[in-house]
Design a protein around this nucleic acid. Structure first.
Lengths: 125, 125
DNA sequence: CCCAATAGTATCCAAACAGGGACTAATTCC
DNA sequence: GGAATTAGTCCCTGTTTGGATACTATTGGG
């Protein structure tokens, strides 16, 4: 999601925060980095669905937003480590609450079939 | 963001929750509905940047996820009200923390002062 | 020599997101 | 009669996201 100008309106703070962690992967990356420094390949293994390209892109975006810190070691084979910045660390309670909510409502989230799921009423006026 | 199937890997809960509230508007809509039932037009006025089309789409997505409830009154001119479902209500702490974080890091977010910002009564001991 | 390993890039492509503007229906107000 | 109101829908456009595949450089090991 592109950078937006949040000049206007209440709700701005919600929008701005969401802007940093949204998309399919950024929240999950931050979550994994909460358990400590990770290398590129380690992150990739932790997120089986992501492609190299997307992982790179998302990491760059997080880096641009100063949420993570990227450290390159001049070795062969290359080694690059990612870790949370101080700002990234400060998101920990945010990620935690997302995780907690998700776990609590797991059954609604197609993490498994929900037998209580009832079809929506007809939308017509 | 399209519906995904969330395997039971770590990070799933984070991903699943984010899936419900991400995008440019959904978090903000939920935030506005926290102050009570709103009509379509009221929401639109609260979010000057959104188009009718996008507001409709996002509301439908939230409804499909059972986070909000849509009530149509057979009147002219039409009246449609939106309010949080019980599940939507349960997201309140999540939205709150997003808002709190955003406010705390306002200066990083190129976010101007929030006109709604009212000092809380001092609750401290 | 050839392969594996790492952390990426490059290129191409499809789908989703986002926005503008025009259009609607039924009723009330002027 | 004409305008305003409400909650949308429809069409058209451009941008962003996400993904598949192939490719790179360097060096150690066999």
């Amino acid at each position: 999601m592109k950078r937006r100008n949040f000049a206007h309106r209440p709700g701005c703070a919600v929008e701005a925060t969401l802007d940093l962690i949204d998309g399919k992967w950024k929240g999950v990356i931050l979550y994994h980095l909460q358990s400590g420094t990770q290398r590129f390949g380690e992150l990739r293994r932790l997120m089986p669905g992501i492609t190299q390209r997307m992982l790179t892109k998302q990491l760059r975006a997080l880096e641009d937003d100063r949420l993570i810190i990227r450290t390159v070691y001049a070795e062969v084979p290359p080694r690059v480590e990612y870790r949370l910045s101080e700002t990234g660390e400060s998101l920990r309670p945010v990620i935690d609450i997302l995780k907690a909510w998700g776990e609590k409502h797991r059954e609604r989230l197609s993490c498994g079939p929900d037998p209580d799921m009832v079809p929506l009423p007809d939308r017509a006026a």
